[in-house]
Design a protein around this nucleic acid. Structure first.
Lengths: 221, 221
DNA sequence: CTGTAATTCAAACGTTTGTATGAAACGATT
DNA sequence: AATCGTTTCATACAAACGTTTGAATTACAG
């Protein structure tokens, strides 16, 4: 029963922290949600702050099995792998079959860092960044500065993150007050093609207008 | 003296709210920062919540003069206009000559909406979105669904926002614990070229590797 | 100067916060 | 059944919170 309460507290804390943020979440709310006594937090964790860090660490550990991404067949072309990477990222962020608070609490930590941020980056984000970089490296020329590689990676995940972090903007802008604004697969396809085209590893996301012609493109190389 | 206190309160509130968030910011902190009496908040605004909304509205009004973006010469090609748009966006976000809390408090609102969010989107974000769409429409073919137009716009601003919202990640990932990780102009150039290439209005950000050839691109069109 | 309204101030209000305490309940070992 | 360590519980506590109050001060019109 002891460890069960501990776990119930972590889950409840994760939910409440993810929803309201650290300050707005009260120990009483959490204990109520966990059907635990008020004193349980201090008994099991020592205090509110420690409970928060534990919850973040727990979310990070649970999500750590997400990365490295499932192994793809060796002969899978990097373009397809990029599509899988982006699709998986979208799926993990926007799908509803996993506890939503795992990602939520981590993203809160990443946007407004506390002491738990560095651990999240090192143990969860960096492996993902490495996976993405591996894929991109197969698509990018060798004579490329590390800065450019970083920026291309950031441009890729920046697109994906936007749809999660700024869903409120999207809802209001597109006048779709509720519901999934865009289907998951559509988003993944778009971002993949957008990125591939940007690095010259695929056709543009739209058929060309007049301005830029293939001739100009040829002249560059 | 009356209105001066009011203004000092708004400024102080903006700073504190932007830094700590609504819940963590205390009325006492704000009044202290504004050199005002504790009761001043309730006297001038009626309460903490109303002060917050007032601060957001103030930030939004101050920033509203940012949009519409400065008029460009009519003969300026859309590619250059896009570069200006992105550059201006970066400048406004990462430059330090304006009070930082104006944007900070609005972005907080956009990521975690309260009652003031809709107003920010309608009065500040939507004009920007319109400006961007106008530019993009000149670069995009006419037979394009509204969804695709939205997604292309989101892919563009998503890249820009990433560098602001997720600066902590960037710092930790690139091991640049302090300072501007990337020069402003470099970022603007990158995002512009990335976007233009993605929609087929410019060359790829890197010289092509082997995989995707111009011949394949020709076959598409 | 006088009187009136607007503003500031110190103090206190009632809640809610995170945390601490000691007794009660439980589980396992002897 | 008795004991001991662990966990739960109701309760209490001091601190901080947003808000209120009424007197003191200022600003300004007559």
């Amino acid at each position: 029963m002891a460890d069960e309460t501990r776990q119930r507290l972590i889950d409840a804390a994760g939910t409440v922290f993810a929803e309201k943020g650290y300050e707005a979440a009260s120990v009483r709310d959490i204990c109520n949600a966990a059907s635990a006594n008020l004193a349980a937090v201090n008994y099991h964790f020592g205090g509110k702050r420690e409970l928060y860090v534990t919850a973040v660490r727990h979310a990070q550990c649970c999500r750590q099995e997400d990365v490295p991404f499932p192994e793809y067949p060796a002969d899978m072309p990097p373009e397809t792998r990029l599509r899988e990477f982006i699709g998986t990222m979208f799926e993990r962020m926007l799908s509803t079959n996993r506890p939503r608070w795992h990602l939520e609490i981590m993203l809160r930590e990443l946007a407004r860092p506390t002491e738990a941020c560095a651990a999240v980056v090192e143990d969860y984000i960096r492996p993902m960044a490495d996976a993405l970089r591996t894929i991109l490296n197969e698509l990018l020329p060798d004579d490329l500065s590390v800065e450019q590689r970083w920026m291309i990676g950031f441009s890729t995940v920046g697109q994906v993150l936007f749809y999660y972090v700024h869903q409120p903007i999207i809802r209001l802008l597109t006048q779709n007050p509720e519901g999934n604004t865009f289907p998951l697969e559509l988003l993944a396809d778009h971002v993949t093609r957008f990125t591939l085209a940007a690095i010259g590893a695929g056709p543009p996301v739209v058929s060309r207008k007049a301005a830029f012609t293939a001739a100009k493109s040829e002249a560059e190389s």
